[in-house]
């Protein structure tokens, strides 16, 4: 009896191992090393990291390792580690655009495919497979076209820039400055929220414009926080804005609070800066069809008339204040 029991146990064990092997064998996990910035950097990054974790999961057929740091040399060290570990793909969002040549070349030698996301690297395009990024210039063009088509003429614009010299600031400013040069609109005040894209600084820019007695009918703020600060200044000065107001408001980044403000007609429009590159990259890897060079993401502009709850749920970042709640 005892022997029989033992035999049964062995049989069960062998069977279960065999079953396990049979199940696991066709699903070889794809090894991925992700080098990213820390989620506490911004709401954008938080959404980005969350999305990466969701898509590159075990259930999805990936064995993913992730390093989140804002230090370029730590990022490079992590990338080297992943290459040594023999990953199949290396996904990088670099803290600095320079200093990556060596590590990218050693990846190439080791046969690791490098895909850049969100941020480009200053290097020879042959050093990576593909780069999936937001086109800041395209975002600026979307916003500028909206301004030209929707703000009553003559357009008098207050421009609130982000951190001067950053890719986002340059890209989002260029189309407006070009339109101003071509005489399609007038920039009556040109200010910046500084290196922190600060709400308070943006508020001061608009307060100064009001104090100087300037007449304007649109505020073009290069992120949502600065748009919020600008609107606070208008509110305090008793100037109407939004759907039926005098001053049109446009922001960037698709924070959910901003989208709710647009939906309520408190602001007028918001332009997307999509942090969710993971599913596109996942598709590339799974299909084995990775494009060459830089690929720009499709991005949206939403206005009070076009926005829906689904948009806010699906594309927004950060906390949702809830339908009908205005963030002043």
């Amino acid at each position: 009896m005892k022997k029989f029991g033992l035999l049964l146990l062995v049989a069960v064990l062998v069977l279960s191992v065999a079953c396990g092997l049979a199940l696991a064998a066709p699903q070889k996990l794809i090894k991925v090393g992700i080098v990213n910035l820390p989620p506490e950097e911004s709401g954008y990054r938080q959404a980005n990291v969350e999305d990466m974790n969701k898509v590159f999961s075990r259930e999805n057929g990936y064995d993913a390792k992730q390093t989140n740091t804002a230090d370029n040399s730590e990022q490079i060290a992590a990338a080297r580690g992943y290459i040594r570990d023999g990953v199949d793909y290396l996904l990088i969002s670099a803290a600095n655009a320079t200093g990556w040549d060596d590590v990218l070349q050693s990846a190439k030698r080791a046969g690791v495919k490098v895909i850049l996301f969100d941020r480009l690297i200053d290097t020879d395009p042959s050093n990576y497979e593909a780069a999936l990024v937001s086109d800041m210039h395209y975002e600026g063009q979307l916003a500028t076209d909206w301004v030209l088509n929707n703000v009553p003429k003559p357009i008098k614009l207050v421009l609130i820039r982000g951190q001067l010299g950053s890719a986002a600031e340059i890209g989002r400013s260029a189309p407006v400055l070009k339109a101003a040069q071509e005489g399609k609109l007038e920039i009556v005040a040109d200010g910046t929220g500084g290196d922190t894209w600060s709400l308070e600084e943006a508020r001061k820019v608009v307060e100064a414009a009001i104090a100087a007695g300037k007449d304007f009918n649109v505020i073009y703020a290069q992120n949502d926080g600065m748009a919020q600060g600008a609107v606070q200044a208008l509110e305090a000065a008793g100037i109407s804005h939004g759907k039926n107001g005098k001053v049109k408001i446009i922001g960037f980044d698709f924070n959910r609070f901003a989208l709710r403000n647009v939906q309520a007609g408190y602001w007028d429009a918001d332009v997307q800066c999509n942090p969710r590159q993971a599913s596109q990259i996942d598709q590339w890897i799974k299909s084995g069809n990775i494009p060459k060079g830089i690929v720009y993401q499709q991005e949206l502009i939403l206005t009070t008339d076009t926005i829906t709850d689904e948009h806010i749920e699906k594309y927004g970042i950060n906390a949702d204040p809830g339908k009908g709640v205005i963030t002043r």
Partner: peptide, 22 residues
């Protein structure tokens, strides 16, 4: 602070907070 926030920027949309801020 980021962790206390639950990794998002929570909204303080109540009327009293608004009055304290304005």
């Amino acid at each position: 602070a980021f962790i206390i926030d639950g990794k998002v920027s929570p909204i303080l949309a109540n009327e009293i907070s608004n009055q304290i801020g304005t």
